[in-house]
């Protein structure tokens, strides 16, 4: 096992406590906020998850009643236009395939509890919040977008990746099978603010956000012209 001396013991412990779910909701949120900016922490969580995983060997299997599978399949596939994997949905524009890495898995594992990073306005001063983690499959680009229904503002926090030299990153919103709508270029700084067009605000919870590689100044055509680098589903929090 690799014990890296530069990692404080406290972080090892916190990662283990987080993986075991010993912490309170607030402590979990604080750790998740740190994890967004610190890939080492993700690796520590993965390590802890792996270490304790054998404990589940002793858990006896329990056959679920057949109704569970029926309900599951009806929920997922009952309607003809059920969205499939979001990468699949935007497959038309995918120009490149990506190798996935360890970090993506951990975020995928833990995203069941993931929350938006601080700071957010107090609940009393804001509307419903929606969050989308727009990530490349290999996490080489990762942007957290938080939408505040009260203001229509989209708070952007780029936690990994950057535009290629002389290129720009453009953010798109996709509603159902409609063509992507540009939300503008990602700010040059890691953090910034964009706004969601009025027409998209009603069904924000069903949007997919995507980031494409574009010429400086943005797509000249109004549709993505470069590779779609990252996608994320919008969910309410």
């Amino acid at each position: 096992m690799s014990t890296q001396p530069e990692i404080p013991e406290e972080d090892h412990l916190l990662a283990t406590e987080y993986a075991l779910r010993l912490l309170t909701k607030d402590e979990e949120a604080a750790f998740e906020a740190r994890m967004l900016d610190d890939r080492d922490l993700e690796a520590l969580v993965a390590e802890a998850v792996n270490q304790f995983a054998p404990l589940s060997d002793e858990i006896a299997e329990e056959r679920p009643s057949p109704a569970v599978k029926t309900a599951l399949l009806a929920d997922l596939f009952g309607e003809a236009d059920t969205p499939t994997s979001i990468w699949d949905r935007i497959g038309l524009w995918r120009a490149t395939s990506f190798a996935a890495t360890a970090a993506a898995v951990v975020m995928a594992v833990m995203l069941v509890t993931q929350q938006a990073p601080a700071p957010l306005p107090p609940a009393s001063e804001r509307g419903a919040l929606f969050v989308s983690e727009i990530a490349a499959e290999d996490n080489s680009l990762r942007v957290l977008a938080v939408y505040d229904a009260a203001t229509g503002g989209l708070q952007i926090n780029r936690t990994a990746g950057a535009p290629a030299p002389d290129r720009a990153l453009e953010l798109w919103a996709i509603a159902g099978d409609n063509a992507p709508v540009s939300l503008g270029l990602l700010p040059a700084d890691a953090k910034g603010q964009l706004s969601l067009p009025e027409a998209l605000r009603a069904d924000v919870g069903g949007l997919v956000l995507a980031i494409s590689d574009e010429p400086t100044g943005g797509s000249p055509t109004g549709a993505p012209t470069g590779a779609v680098l990252a996608v994320g589903q919008v969910t309410d929090i």
Binding site: V49, A53, T101, A102, V105, A108
Partner: peptide, 21 residues
């Protein structure tokens, strides 16, 4: 179903991933 595209081989076994979720 939704996040399967984010699972990858990385030393975490698929059962560990599923059990963790």
């Amino acid at each position: 179903w939704r996040y399967a595209d984010r699972y990858s081989r990385n030393g975490m076994s698929p059962m560990t991933w599923l059990i963790t979720i």
